[in-house]
Design a protein around this nucleic acid. Structure first.
Lengths: 158, 158
DNA sequence: TATTGTTATACTCTATAACTATA
DNA sequence: TATAGTTATAGAGTATAACAATA
C-alpha cells in the first residue's frame, strides 16, 4: 500500500489480525461493540455446527424450554426466550412440520396452545445438546475456568 | 436536526425479569445464549438512545473509523468492522446523503474511494460518543470496575 | 375489554452473485 | 486476472398492526 495517512502519534496496536493498517481504538474500548462482535462470531460458528440438523439456534432454544416445561403454552415459551408471539407461530409450525413437537389446544383455556416434544424431538434435542457442549468448550478453550464463570455471572447482570 | 443533547434514556431491562414461571436452566448455563441475550438487550437499548440522530450503531462505527483514519479507503473500513463491501456501499451513501462525510476518488488508484468526515460529521460523532459513554456507564452500572475490565479482556479472546 | 395465537408486513443485518472500472 | 466498488437479491432476526377465537 503506497498511500500513507498523517502520523497519528504513538497509537499502540495490539494483536489485531484484521486490517492491520486501520485503527479502531475507540470501538475496541466499548463493551457494547465487543459484546456484539463476540456474540456474532459465536453464533455464526454455532450455526455452522448445526447446519445439517435443519435447526437454527432459536429452534433448539424452543425445544429446550419445552423439554424443561412439558405442556408449556406457546406464549410462555416466547416470553421466556424474548421471542414475539407473532414470530413464535411460524417457528413452532416449522418444528411441528419436522415432527419434533406436537401442539394441542389447552382445554382449560381454548385460546392457548400447549406444546410437547415427540420422541423424535427428544432424541434430536439430546443430539443438539451434545453438539452445544462441544461447541462451547471449543469456543471458550482460551478461557480459564474462572474466566468462564465470571463471564457467565457478569453477562447475567447486563 | 439541529442541537443534539445526550439522552438519559429509559429504564434498562435485565435478563432477570422474564417469565418467572418457566424454567430455562439449560440455556441459562450456556455462554452462547447469555452472550446473545446480553448483546441484544445492550444493542436495542443503545439503538433507542440513538434514535433521534437518524444513525444506527453501524453508522457510528463507520464514522469512528473514518475519524481515527482520515482518508481511509471504504473497503478498509468494511474489513476493520467486518462489514461486507456490498453492504458498505449503501451505508456510506447514507452517511454522505446526511452530509456527515465526503467520498473522493483515490487518484493513486482510481478504483478506490477515500472517505473523510465533514465538520458536521465530526460534530455529530462527538455527540454520539458522549451518548455512548453515558449508555455504557448506565448499562454496566451493576458491574465493578474489575468486572468491566475482565469482561472486555475476555470478550477479546472469544 | 383483554388475551392467545395467527397473518401480513417491514426494516435491519448478513451473505452471495453479477456487473463496472480500474489495475 | 485481480481488485474496489456497486447493484440486486435472499435469508434470518426483530418489530408492529390487524384480525379471529376465546376469556
Amino acid at each position: 500500500m503506497s498511500v500513507m495517512t498523517v502520523d497519528k502519534g504513538t497509537a499502540l496496536r495490539t494483536s489485531e489480525d484484521v486490517s492491520p493498517g486501520v485503527s479502531t481504538d475507540f470501538l475496541d474500548g466499548l463493551v457494547g461493540y465487543r459484546l456484539r462482535q463476540a456474540s456474532n462470531s459465536f453464533m455464526s460458528d454455532f450455526a455452522a455446527s448445526m447446519a445439517d440438523t435443519g435447526l437454527r439456534a432459536v429452534h433448539v432454544s424452543i425445544l429446550s424450554v419445552v423439554e424443561e416445561n412439558p405442556g408449556v403454552r406457546q406464549g410462555e415459551i416466547g416470553r421466556a426466550l424474548g421471542v414475539a408471539r407473532a414470530n413464535m407461530a411460524p417457528l413452532v409450525a416449522e418444528l411441528e412440520g419436522m415432527r419434533l413437537l406436537r401442539r394441542t389446544t389447552d382445554e382449560s383455556d381454548r385460546r392457548a396452545v400447549i406444546v410437547r416434544l415427540t420422541k423424535a424431538g427428544e432424541a434430536l434435542l439430546r443430539n443438539c445438546k451434545a453438539r452445544i457442549e462441544v461447541h462451547e468448550r471449543r469456543a471458550l478453550q482460551r478461557l480459564t475456568r474462572s474466566e468462564k464463570e465470571t463471564l457467565l455471572r457478569v453477562l447475567k447482570k447486563i
